[in-house]
Design a protein around this nucleic acid. Structure first.
Lengths: 239, 239
DNA sequence: CGTCTGGTTGATCTAGATCAACAGGAGTGG
DNA sequence: CCACTCCTGTTGATCTAGATCAACCAGACG
């Protein structure tokens, strides 16, 4: 058993993650990846890169939760996307050479593997499998954001809030001792609001309403679903 | 001068279009492209492919305007994106093998070049330049939709409507005999509304308001901008 | 002619924004 | 230990952008 297994580096974490773009690195490519990578630990509130800043490195999320935030000219800001373990962030700036369009902000304690440009470029140029993976990643991201956009155009806040709750539930929900479906929300109300283009006040009231309607019970960050089926009925298929 | 120039086929149209993904096809690849392609003419209201239908072919828009529409479970629909000459549509279904997520509806008379799956796959597998182009195309689409999504989350209808007017103006606007900036809107109010997640009534009233505020003058489909600068000031940088 | 389609207008309603106040912790510093 | 402030969240009062529903209008078209 190599030391990689005893003390995991980026290679084993990033490239072994079943959803990662880097899952099928082998041989020289894997060695290059490992040599060039740095692994960093981030805390909530940290920023991995800023909107408007030049590309610094490809960020592969090993664990945690990252939000991509966009701020407009008058200071309004929105969380456009959430990125989980296994996802690669910042590839757009790598590929088109432009500055980052979003700020990548850390929402929960996260471990991230950073691959600087030279290595990323070499890997991409040398291995067509990797650029294919990146293309898949692009397609996945586009589908996700298109779906979110469509929801924002056609639906009210209530089903949209329920939708993000369900997304979180899928990723980190669990059953408590009474077999209730429970979710420990990883983000605060403000960020929930930024995710939906709403205000924290509205989120607060909306949650109250969901409780009155008997869909969920919420205490601070803990969300207990009274009936997952009822929730799904409100929002249609989650994906 | 070859007959291609006298009676343009897809090759010369699609692949010569400066923004097309296919601009640098040469030799055998170009021959394959030409052999496999079919060119079709569509009229407004026609549908190139339906949401939920399987991939039939890659659609390269030679001329015209295509809208990608998404309809949800309760029948609400939105126009997620507009695609102009030079753009390739439907690549997602090609690459991931899933059904189309959107309906591609024709908004103005359009000429489209259709490349069936086998040829598309062969071209993609054999020519890394092409998959790189497709990746760029993906990146462009993702940037666009992200920007639209951000606007929908943070801005009111007024700047968003002005934004789509400016987008149209950039593409097809002109100066009239008095040097006014004029735009002949290619779509009707309903579609404008679907593009913004609004109702036709709201669009109608909003336009009235823009006229009252002296930003534009509108008669049927003709939009005359009183001051492009004022409009730009309202919406910030267009791109 | 009647009918249809796209657009406008008016009256009313409502979801969500805004603004202001307040409440409960969690530090922090005396 | 208490007082203070900061930060997140909640609540209340009010406002408003945009939706909804109904009517109507003009042109196109059989």
């Amino acid at each position: 058993m190599s030391s990689d297994f005893l003390e995991p580096h980026c290679c084993s974490e990033c490239s072994h993650h079943c959803r990662s773009e880097w899952r099928d690195l082998t041989g020289d490519d894997l060695a290059l990846f490992n040599k060039a990578k740095t692994v960093r630990r981030f805390e909530p509130g940290d920023v991995m890169f800023h909107q408007g800043s030049p590309f610094q490195g490809l960020h592969c999320i090993q664990s945690g939760l990252i939000g991509l935030r966009r701020v407009d000219e008058d200071g309004n800001s929105a969380l456009l996307r959430l990125c989980n373990a296994g996802e690669t962030v910042g590839y757009r700036a790598l590929l088109n050479g432009d500055d980052h369009l979003n700020t990548a902000e850390v929402l929960v304690p996260s471990t991230v593997c950073i691959l600087p440009r030279p290595a990323a470029t070499r890997l991409l140029a040398g291995n067509s499998k990797i650029s294919r993976r990146l293309l898949e990643c692009c397609i996945r991201d586009i589908s996700r954001i298109e779906a979110d956009y469509a929801r924002s155009l056609t639906k009210k806040m209530k089903p949209r809030l329920l939708h993000v709750l369900m997304i979180f539930y899928e990723q980190m929900g669990y059953r408590d001792q009474f077999d209730n479906s429970v979710l420990e929300l990883p983000i605060q109300r403000q960020q929930l609001a930024d995710l939906l283009g709403a205000t924290p006040e509205s989120i607060s009231r909306l949650i109250k309403r969901l409780e009155r309607e008997g869909l969920v019970r919420v205490q601070d960050r803990r969300v207990t679903f009274c009936s997952i089926d009822d929730v799904v009925a409100e929002i249609g298929p989650v994906h």
